[in-house]
Write a protein that binds this DNA or RNA. Structure first.
Lengths: 216, 216
DNA sequence: GTGTTGATTGAACGACCGTAGAATGAAGGG
DNA sequence: CCCTTCATTCTACGGTCGTTCAATCAACAC
């Protein structure tokens, strides 16, 4: 039993501060992105000196890499589990389930990557590396010739929703319940995964911009 | 006739240089984002001195604001035009049309905003200011109680697709034709806008691929 | 106890950034 | 033709950043 009143051993203390630094880094990277996050600010938040951060992590990039690692108990949100195989319908549903999980608590490490991926190459590659296997798994399950594009669209929807919910906090997406969101998304995902167009077609055969009534 | 061999007047030259600076700024903001774009680098690209950029635009923020302005001939991609009113079906179709237009040539100014919106408050506000009226227009056209959430989802999908195509250049989304993309998206948009869930039972409870045949 | 390791700090360096302001020189109006 | 205007450049200041390094001091092995 670890006595809380006992003086922590050196290794314990080391791991404790290192974890504190990582937590502060994750938080700041997720909120500010890579560039605007300062080693000095991370150190201050963690209550240590900036030099110590360098001494432990060597480089800001290395700090980001470590902060972007997902905790071991949180696998990359829907990998390989149920998603790896199955019919297109099953894959679509698995993707919805994984999205639902991310929608009530995306790990801060993932948010750090997402926040930085548009302005930092390392973060962009990290995002690509995480999205690519998922992408090819979805592709493999879709029977049509345009499977790759459909899978890309599914991925774009997932990330668009997460970005608007957590990073932009726009509209109702920020506070809606995960279940409500995925219920609305389910027909979309099923339609994209299984190539069947659900309603009896809604094509604007002729130019549907004919709009004689210009009244408001 | 403006004689090209004639020496440009001072006002002409001024406007020419200013436009060159703006073009360089737009490009760099779109590719690197606000933080990584340097006034010195913009000036160098435009072939002028950094002090001149300051003299004309006063501030980096002001330069960004001017660079983020859409050219007059490119309205904010689907505003108010056809989108302002109509049935939910029409609004969904209009949104698709506006997306198609953006998919074969998003203006660089918009990309500058999109690239920077996750790490720059000004860009985020600019994005919100552009998305909000569109959002409420879509909301107004959707008859259900969760109209706001549905509109948010539509917006999230649009922006997710554009981000992956232009900013992340991920998967097939980067090179697919606009028509192909919006054809795949049409059922999704129609389903989200008009609140009808196409197949009544799509739950993956069992593997029953029994599909309710398309009743005509 | 003594010597060693290592966690932690503080100060400093060099680079780069946004920005300011003086200097220059050609255009333009009277 | 002269004097003003202004497009343009040059130099520099203050600040912040990532990073380095010597110094300190408690924990620890022997």
């Amino acid at each position: 039993m670890t006595d809380p009143s006992a003086k922590p051993t050196r290794a314990q203390q080391r791991r404790r501060t290192e974890e504190g630094i990582l937590a502060a880094a994750r938080q700041m990277f997720a909120e500010l992105g890579y560039d605007r996050t300062t080693i000095r600010a991370v150190a201050a938040t963690a209550g240590v000196d900036a030099g110590l951060v360098m001494h432990y992590f060597g480089t800001k990039d290395e700090l980001f890499a470590r902060a972007a690692e997902l905790p071991a108990d949180e696998p990359p949100s829907g990998t390989a589990d149920e998603l790896s195989s199955g019919t297109a319908e099953q894959v679509a549903e698995a993707l919805l389930t994984s999205l639902a999980k991310r929608l009530d608590g995306e790990p801060v490490a993932s948010l750090a990557v997402l926040r930085s991926m548009l302005t930092n190459n390392d973060a962009a590659n990290r995002y690509r590396a995480a999205a690519e296997p998922q992408l090819s798994q979805i592709t493999a399950a879709i029977p049509t010739a345009d499977a790759e594009l459909r899978a890309s669209l599914l991925s774009a929807i997932v990330h668009g929703v997460i970005i608007e919910r957590y990073l932009l906090r726009l509209g109702r997406l920020a506070d809606a319940s995960p279940d409500q969101i995925i219920d609305l998304l389910r027909p979309c995902f099923q339609t994209l995964a299984t190539a069947q167009t659900p309603p009896p077609a809604n094509r604007p055969a002729t130019d549907s911009r004919a709009r004689p009534d210009s009244h408001r």
